[in-house]
Amino acid sequence: MITTSTIAQILVNGLTSGAFYVLMALGFTLIFGILRLVNFAHGEFYMLGAFVVYHLTTQLGLDYFSAVALSALVIGLAGMMVEKTVFAPLRGRELSMLMSALGLQIAIQGVMAVVEGVDGFSIPSPVSGVYRSSWLAFPYERLLVVGLTIVVLAGFYLLIKHSTLGKSLRAVAQDGEAALMQGIPVNRVYAIAFGLGAALAAIAGGLIAPIFSLHVYMGQAALLKAFIVVILGGLGSIPGAVVGGLLLGVAESAFATLFGGLTAEMLGFLLIMGVLLWKPTGILARADG
């Protein structure tokens, strides 16, 4: 029976997972837009981000919010180094870059499996309780995910639209060679874009860590979601990542409530099959795209 509160619950769950998908897809699509790289290792930065938060909070006693911020910074810098060492030498060879990203994915997972083991860990939630009204129950920890995502998105928007770095990023995304002619330090922009993407994934990891347990293989599923979202929204399109992420989150949540978890899991595939066949450049792409 579908009631107002069912619909509200679908939206609450859909927004939470949607917010998470948006963060994952944003970095993924940014990296593709700038570097032309299908970053198969994207899920691993998300996993690393979650683990850094875990260690900072449980072992160093840092508060949750500082831990997430610090984790984003650390993983962002690590991402820049990875770009310099692994991808910069392969510039322009798309297939080699893609295969290297696969290698990176396997390697990071391999190292973490040795260092952390394959068991699950959990982080205590920084907030507790549930916001309740007559028709809505919104756990605060989920509200926190949505709220922080909005903060991150706003910051990202300001960075892209109103900073010198943002201008450089947009120029390189449009045409790397032309950007080089204008005197933009293209190589640094590549590294920064990758670092930014990795940091966004790390934030997603930090946000999701208190809700689900973390383990070294958590990246694969997150990567798959990022894939689906960017196909829905259009590869390289930032508004597409936001719209596609929310769409997938809410649609999955609706299907899970109405038809059960398995159908919801299949839904993503059916959606992208539909979109790819109907409009391969994504739902938000312009006609000439």
Binding site: L90, M97, M99, G103, I106, A107, Q109, G110, V111
Partner: peptide, 20 residues
């Protein structure tokens, strides 16, 4: 065995770098 997965990934990256 412990490092098998890591080595596999590393070899793959080295291949792409030096013998594409």
């Amino acid at each position: 065995l412990l490092w098998q997965q890591f080595l596999y990934g590393l070899i793959l990256m080295l291949f792409m770098r030096f013998l594409p």
